[in-house]
Structures are given as C-alpha cells and as structure tokens.
Amino acid sequence: MSDSKRPEPPEGPMCLTRRSFLSISVLAGAAALGTPAIARSAQGQGSPEFKGWPKSYGMLTDFTACVGCRSCEKACNEANRMPAPEKPFDDASVFEESRWPSATAYTVVNRYKNSADSSRPLFRKIQCNHCLEPACATACPIHAYTKTPEGAVIYNKDLCFGCRYCVVACPFNIPAYDYSSPLDAKIVKCILCFGRIKEGKIPACAEACPAGALTFGRRADLLKLARKRIIDSPEKYIDHIYGEREVGGTSWLYLSGVPFEQLGFPTNLPEKPLIELSKGYLSTVPVIFTTFPAIFGMVYAVMRHNERAAGKEERSKQHKEVDHE
C-alpha cells in the first residue's frame, strides 16, 4: 500500500527531471536489449506513424459530471475480486488525502478544490490511461505487456519478473507493485476490464457510474462526442480533450471544466509517443551492427588482398632474379 500515496507527476514546463531522464534511459536500455522497443514501437505494425488500432475502444471521463460517489471504485473492486478496503466505499474521509492507484485498488477518486466554484468540489478518477503507444510495453524487456486491438493495455503476470522498467517508463505513474509475495512481486494495473470487453460487456466502472461521467465506446466516437460537448457548452468545458494527443494519444480521454493541471494531470508531456525520444539514435544501432562489420570486413579483405598481391609480386620478383642467376 506504500505506493498508494505516490506523488503525482511534476508539473510545469518540460524539463529533464530525474524521472523523465530515467524514463528515457529505460526506453533506450530496453530498445538496446534486443531492440524490442523498435520492433514493437507500433504494436507490431512496425510503422512510426501508428495512430492506434482502428475501431479500438476507449473511455471518456467527463469531470464536470462526476459527483464523487465512488461507485466506480466499488465496481472495480468487485469486478477484480479484490479484498474490501479498510474504509467502506461511501466513506468521504478518504478524500482528505490524495490517493493513487495501487495493487489493491486499480482506480481511485480524489477530491480537488474548485477554483471556479468553491461551493462545489471537483473529483478526478485515476487509472491506467491505456496509451496508444504504451511506454510500459516498450520498456518491458520480456514482452509481458500487450496493447490489444480492443484498446486495453494488458499484461501477462506470469511473464513479469519484477524489473519495474514499466513503473519508471509510464508517464502517468500508473503500474503499481503487488508486494504480497516478497519473492514473487508482480506489476498490477487497470486492464480496462479486458475480460468483460471480450464477453461483450463494458468495463465495470463505466457500468456502475450513475452520473454519466464515464462513457465507454469506440475511441473515434468518443472524440466526436467530446468535441460536441465542448461545442454545445463552451462555458462549461475548457477547450482541451486530454488524451487526444498526449504521448501519442491515450484510449482514456478526459473533459474538464478547469485546466487539467488543477486536477493534478501532467501537462508537460510531449505529443509524440515517448519512444520517439529515443528512437532516432537507437535506430542507428542495428544499422551500425550490420553495416560496420561489412565495411570493416571489406576494408580488411581489400587490405589482405593487396598484401597478398604485394607478397606474390615480391615472390615472383625473387623467382625471376633466381632464374636470371
């Protein structure tokens, strides 16, 4: 539970923080180790222009609608068969501190002060954003993560060996650690109720939300819906769909009535997937490994050939001199 109070990602302009440095290093390291990053940067598509799987699902969270009932947390807990929390789900005292998703709660709702209307607090639901080009999947050296065509970023617990590269690589600070077994610690996070989606159901949190704050659907449709809401009620929303472009786009999208930094969102993220930061120079690695031996081999062969030719000439000269004698 120690990671349930992890600090939120730093705010402010883009700068090379310790965390971002580590993220890039991890991506770079993973890419260098057998270059899984390059091979999988587009989820098997091999294209740097991957824009997400067509018809993939996503979720739209509308913070202007959320009333902080925590029904989503309860539904998540029940759907994932997790133990009951210390405090019941209708206990508002949990809002007194900032919580973060953990091994025992894949999603949490935090309460924030509302700068626009002090009489009504704001709520933010936090969970995995299911990036279109997930840094966790890129960083994982053992391919435990998969970005499914349905949109969910899932992982194979049995493959995970606990390196925690994904923890460092995630720009949203999401993968949590299950410390229940000290020798067999595992990564855990929201998987967009992938099993339920495959059964034709919708994620448990969206099914439970009574306020219409969570809408599950095709990501392309959700973007249209979000834009329509902004156009229909420009006084209600800020003109930004969070997740549309951040780190190459995420399957989870957000609408808000206040700037996202006020809800603790990292707003200093690049629009390109994080793998783009290291792909440029890492793409030269295989080139170097294939062309350099060939070039040096050819140079060596030419030199050897010249040496032999020179040696032959020398020998034939000597032979001629001997013949003359």
Binding site: I202, P210, A211, G212, G217, D221, L222, L225, K228
Partner: peptide, 17 residues
C-alpha cells in the same frame, strides 16, 4: 447501454443526470 452509441446514455444515467 451500447458502446456503439456512446451519445445515448442508459436509463440509470439519464435519470441521474
């Protein structure tokens, strides 16, 4: 609710809203 028509909330959401 159908994810194919995300603009149409189900009855529970419609009433609560």
């Amino acid at each position: 609710y159908s994810p194919e028509t995300p603009g149409m909330p189900d009855l529970k959401v419609a009433l609560h809203k």
